[in-house]
Simulated scan of single mutants.
Amino acid sequence: MSRDGKKRVEHLLSHVFELPKDLVMDLPRITMLGDMQVHVENHRGIIEYAKEKIRISTGCGELLINGSGLVLRNILPDEIVVDGRIRSIAILE
């Protein structure tokens, strides 16, 4: 089955059974608090960590957080919290 076909089936299953898409489709849940904090759930690990850039692996690609004074507050198997001045967030495939 192609990647697009698999995503359609997962989307349909989440809709029919009323399940959260982030769980069924292995998607990250990203929550931002202003420009001061990013909370990432359902990640696959840290790729790069610096005070100006953090790269996090996710099920839909790589999450790139740019800013200044970036600090990893919590690193748990299923969630990461980043504090600092957030300038941009991007998802790279």
Rank of each mutant, 00 (worst) to 15 (best):
M1Q: 02
S2H: 05
S2T: 11
G5H: 11
G5K: 09
R8F: 14
R8I: 11
R8T: 08
V9R: 06
V9P: 07
V9H: 07
V9C: 02
E10R: 08
H11Q: 14
L12D: 06
L12M: 13
L13M: 13
V16H: 02
F17Q: 05
F17N: 06
D22P: 12
D22V: 07
D22C: 10
L23A: 03
V24Q: 10
V24H: 06
M25I: 03
P28H: 04
P28A: 05
P28V: 01
R29L: 12
I30T: 01
T31Y: 05
G34Y: 08
M36Q: 10
M36N: 07
Q37A: 13
V38G: 03
H39M: 12
V40G: 03
E41S: 12
H43P: 04
H43K: 00
R44C: 14
R44L: 15
R44V: 02
G45K: 02
G45A: 04
I46L: 15
I47P: 11
E48D: 12
E48C: 10
Y49V: 13
A50M: 08
E52F: 08
E52T: 15
K53S: 09
I56S: 04
T58M: 01
G59S: 06
C60A: 15
C60K: 10
G61I: 05
I65A: 07
I65G: 03
N66R: 08
S68I: 13
S68C: 11
S68Y: 11
S68K: 08
G69P: 06
L70G: 02
L72G: 03
L76K: 07
D78Y: 03
I80T: 00
V81S: 13
V82E: 00
V82S: 09
D83G: 09
R85N: 08
R85E: 06
S88E: 07
A90D: 12
I91G: 02
E93L: 12
